[in-house]
Simulated scan of single mutants.
Amino acid sequence: MKEGLDPRFALYLSYRAVLIDYASYLLGSREGAEDLVQEAFIKFIPSGGSRTPTARPRSYLFRIVHNLAVDVLRRKRLENLRSAHNAPVWAGSQAAATPEETVLYHESERRAMDIIAGLPEKQRVALEMHRFGGYSVEEVAAHLGVSVPTVYRLIQAAVATVTIRLEQDSGGRE
C-alpha cells in the first residue's frame, strides 16, 4: 500500500486497476466496470471507520465485484427479455391506422377485460394493481399477504392466460 495515505484510499488505489479489468471482463464494458468498482468500494469500506473491514481485502473486493456484476448482467437479461417481447395488444392503447383496426383493437381490449375479470381473484388483483394501477410488486404483495416472488408468478400466470385466450379467440390474428 502507498505510504502516508488513508488506508482505505490506499486500498482503492492499489486494487482499482485490477478490479476494473476483472469487471470489464465480466460485463464487457469498461465504463460499466468503472462504475461497478466504485460501487464495490462503497459497499466494502464502512462509512466513518478508519480501518479496513477484513484481513483479506483483495479476495473480498473481488467477491463484491463479482456479485455486483452478476446482478447487473441479470438485470440486463431481464430488461432484454421484456423489450424483446412486445407488449400484447390488450396491455395498453396503440394508435390504429384504419377504422377496421380500431374496431378490432377495441374488440380485443373488451375481450381481454372479460378474460381478466374471469381470472382467479389473486391473479386478477395482482395484474390490475401492478399493470394498470401502477403499484409496485412489494405493495401488491403486502396487499395480498403473499411474497414478492408469488406476486411475480401471479402476474406472469395472468398475462399468459390472457394472451393465450386472446390468441385462441382470434385464431392467431393478434
Rank of each mutant, 00 (worst) to 15 (best):
M1D: 10
M1I: 11
K2L: 15
E3K: 14
G4P: 00
L5Y: 12
D6V: 07
F9L: 07
F9Q: 12
F9W: 05
S14F: 01
R16Y: 14
A17V: 09
V18F: 02
S24C: 06
S24D: 02
L26E: 02
L27H: 01
L27N: 03
L27K: 05
E31G: 14
E31P: 07
G32D: 15
G32V: 07
D35F: 04
D35R: 05
L36W: 03
A40I: 03
I42C: 10
F44T: 00
I45R: 00
I45T: 06
P46K: 14
S47T: 15
T52G: 05
T52R: 08
P53S: 03
P53E: 02
P53N: 06
R56W: 04
R58P: 01
S59F: 05
R63W: 05
R63Y: 05
R63K: 08
I64Q: 00
I64D: 01
V65R: 04
H66F: 02
N67W: 11
L68K: 04
L73G: 03
R77N: 12
L78I: 11
E79Q: 11
L81H: 12
R82T: 02
R82S: 08
H85G: 11
N86T: 12
N86D: 10
N86L: 06
A87F: 14
G92H: 10
G92F: 07
G92L: 07
S93A: 07
A95Y: 09
E100F: 04
E100N: 13
T102R: 15
V103S: 04
V103N: 06
Y105E: 01
R110G: 01
R111D: 15
R111P: 11
P120R: 13
P120Y: 14
R124A: 05
V125S: 08
A126T: 04
A126P: 06
E128A: 10
M129W: 00
F132G: 08
F132E: 10
F132Q: 14
G133I: 10
V137G: 05
E139V: 13
V140C: 13
A141S: 08
A142Q: 09
H143P: 01
G145Q: 00
V146E: 00
V151F: 12
Q156Y: 15
V162R: 00
V162Q: 02
I164C: 07
Q168V: 07
D169I: 11
G171D: 09
G171Y: 05
G171K: 08
R173P: 03
